[in-house]
């Protein structure tokens, strides 16, 4: 699954965190199903051309967070038990990160809290309205 994850080593965000975010996003979006096997550490490291220990660290943290489970000799899998809740939580994690970045950027541009609230309401109105018009 070569195109499943992408990381940017030049980004200031630690690579293992980028990878964790990517996996959580894939689980939340359903790109990765419960029970689906993840690439091996080695395969993913070679695939992304990043250090294998970094991949292993991301997998360890994902396992600790209950997103994946690893059985020695078989590989790593997206956890099937309560995956919906995990997926949802993973999705919320990702969304929170994105929103907080947006708030920071907006504030840097000089938009204060009430102003941001207005903008935010407007964005919600636009996106949720469009979703109602084109149900997925």
């Amino acid at each position: 699954m070569p195109a499943l994850f992408t990381v940017d080593p030049r980004n200031g965000v630690p690579l293992y965190l980028q990878l964790i975010e990517q996996v959580k996003r894939a689980v939340a979006l359903g790109t990765l199903d419960a029970g689906e096997q993840l690439p091996t550490v080695k395969a993913l490291a070679v695939d992304l051309t990043i250090n294998p220990n970094t991949v292993a660290r991301a997998y360890r943290e994902l396992e600790r967070d209950g997103i994946i489970e690893t059985s020695p000799g078989r590989g790593s899998f997206v956890r099937s038990g309560g995956v919906a809740r995990d997926a949802q939580r993973a999705g919320v994690d990702v969304a929170e990160g994105v929103l907080s970045e947006a708030v920071r950027e907006s504030r840097a541009l000089g938009v204060d809290a009430p102003g941001q609230r207005t903008l935010f309401e407007r964005a919600i109105a636009r996106w949720f309205a469009s979703e109602e018009r084109h149900p997925t």
């Binding site: 080593p9 030049r10 550490v41 080695k42 490291a45 070679v46 051309t49 990043i50």
Partner: peptide
């Protein structure tokens, strides 16, 4: 990266940060 995945330990110097941030 392949050697590292195979368990080898590596010390390497480079002028290219891009290589270091990927491989190391």
């Amino acid at each position: 990266i392949d050697a590292s995945a195979g368990g080898a330990s590596v010390l390497f110097s480079s002028h290219q940060i891009g290589q270091v941030e990927r491989a190391a």
